[in-house]
Design a protein around this nucleic acid. Structure first.
Length: 174
DNA sequence: GAAGAGTTGTACT
DNA sequence: AGTACAACTCTTC
C-alpha cells in the first residue's frame, strides 16, 4: 500500500483507561488517528502505525483528549465530540459521515442509511459504511453506534465487534 | 426469511 | 483515467 499522506508535525500519546491502553496521534489541527482500547500500549501503538513512527511523544498535547477518553472508558457520560479531529487526509464525504457519526448521542444507534443521509445522499449507504470502515479515529468517532437498518451489528470483521458490543452495552446500561 | 439487484464513494491498478 | 471493492439498503422470490 502506498500512502502519500504527509504530516509536517505529528505527535502521539498512549495512556491507560478502564478499558485498556489507547494510543492517539494528532497534528496541530487535531487528532488524526486513534486506536481502540488494547491490552497493552504496544498493541495500541501498533494500531496507529506507521503514522506513529514519525510522531513524537507529546503527552502535554493531549492532556484534554486523554482526560475525555479516559472518562469515557470509565463510563462517564461525556461527549467525545469535544475532541478536535483533523481529517484533512480524508475526503469531504468521509468527513461529513464522521461528523454525523459524532452527533449520535451515547446509548443511541443509527443506521448507515441515516449516516448517508446526513452526509448528503441517502443512497450512499455503502459509502457511509466505508467511511466507518476507514475510520481511524476509533472512539472519537463512535462508529460502534452505527448499525444496519435491521438492528443487526453487521460487518465489523475483526476485533472491532466485541469491543463495539462492549461499548454499546456500557452506553446503553448507563 | 433468503436471495438478487441498485446506488454512491473511495482506493487501487 | 478506469476498474474493483465496501461495515448498505431496498425490492422481490
Amino acid at each position: 500500500m502506498a500512502k502519500k499522506d504527509k504530516y509536517q508535525r505529528l505527535t502521539y500519546d498512549v495512556f491507560d483507561t478502564d478499558m485498556g491502553w489507547v494510543a492517539i496521534v494528532g497534528s496541530d489541527h487535531g487528532i488524526v488517528r486513534a486506536s481502540l482500547p488494547e491490552d497493552t500500549p504496544e498493541t495500541a501503538l501498533d494500531y496507529v502505525q506507521p503514522e506513529v513512527n514519525t510522531a513524537e511523544h507529546a503527552p502535554a498535547e493531549y492532556v484534554d483528549a486523554r482526560a475525555l477518553i479516559s472518562a469515557y472508558c470509565a463510563g462517564e457520560p461525556i461527549d467525545l465530540a469535544d475532541i478536535p479531529i483533523d481529517t484533512r487526509s480524508a475526503t469531504p464525504f468521509f468527513r461529513k459521515a464522521w461528523d454525523a457519526c459524532r452527533t449520535i448521542p451515547a446509548g443511541e444507534t443509527r443506521s448507515y442509511g441515516w449516516l448517508a443521509e446526513q452526509a448528503g445522499n441517502i443512497k450512499a449507504a455503502r459509502g457511509a459504511g466505508q467511511a466507518m470502515a476507514r475510520n481511524r479515529l476509533a472512539l472519537l468517532v463512535p462508529c460502534h453506534r452505527v448499525i444496519s437498518s435491521s438492528g443487526a451489528l453487521h460487518g465489523f470483521g475483526g476485533a472491532g465487534l466485541p469491543l463495539k458490543s462492549r461499548l454499546l452495552a456500557m452506553e446503553t446500561d448507563r
